[in-house]
Amino acid sequence: MATATIQWISIEEAAAKMKQEPRKVLVDVYTDWCGWCKKMDKATYSAPQIISFINKNFYPVKLDAESKKPITLNGHTYQYNDEYRSHELAVALLQGQMSYPSTVYLNEKMEMLSPVPGYMDAKDFSKIMRYFGEDHYKSLSWQEHEKKN
C-alpha cells in the first residue's frame, strides 16, 4: 500500500472545489529557502494522523510566499510584490507578518480564521488543526481549548 500523503492543491483549485463542497482551507505558507518549512514537511505533514485529518477536513494549499505567478481569487489578482519580496496573497494571508513557515486557517467562505506562525511538531500542530477543523473556535477561546486537550 502506498503511503498516504496530504493532497496539496493550489488556492485557485480550493476556491473552485468550495463551490461544490465547502470546507475549511489550510494554507501552508512557505519559501524554498526555509529550513523549518522543510522540517515541518518531513516531520509534521508526514504524520499519519495529520495527513488523514487534513485530507478529510480541509482543502490543503501550499503557497510559496515568493512565487512570481499571479493568483486570481474572487475577481482579485494578487501579484508578486518587489517591495515586500513576497507574493501579495502571502502578505494578505499573513497580515504583513512575514514568518515562515506559517499555517493560515480559512473558513468555508475563505474568510480568515487565523494565521499561525512558526514551526510546529505533529503534537502541537494537531491541537491547532483540530481547534479549527472541528469548529471548537466557534465556542472556545484557544486558551480554553488548550486546557481541555
Rank of each mutant, 00 (worst) to 15 (best):
Y30V: 10
S99R: 04
P115G: 11
D32I: 13
S139V: 11
C34T: 01
L106K: 01
L73E: 14
W142C: 03
V104G: 03
N57F: 06
N149Y: 09
S139D: 11
K127D: 13
D32H: 05
F125A: 00
A90F: 13
M120H: 13
L26A: 07
D41K: 03
E111F: 08
K17M: 10
Y105S: 04
E12T: 11
Q20T: 15
K68S: 11
A92Q: 14
E144Y: 03
P101T: 10
Y45R: 00
A15T: 14
W142E: 14
A47K: 00
K69C: 08
Y78W: 10
K17F: 06
Y78R: 05
F53M: 07
I54A: 00
Y45Q: 01
M18R: 02
G96A: 10
V61L: 04
E66T: 14
F53Q: 00
N74I: 00
H76G: 09
V27A: 05
Q95V: 13
D82A: 12
S52H: 11
I50D: 12
G96S: 07
T5P: 01
K127V: 10
S52E: 14
Y137E: 09
E108R: 11
F125N: 00
K109Y: 13
A4G: 13
E144T: 02
L140M: 11
A47H: 03
M98H: 07
D82N: 06
E134L: 14
V91M: 00
N81E: 04
D32Q: 07
Y30N: 03
D28W: 05
Q143H: 09
L113G: 12
G133S: 04
N81W: 11
Y105N: 08
K19H: 07
V104D: 00
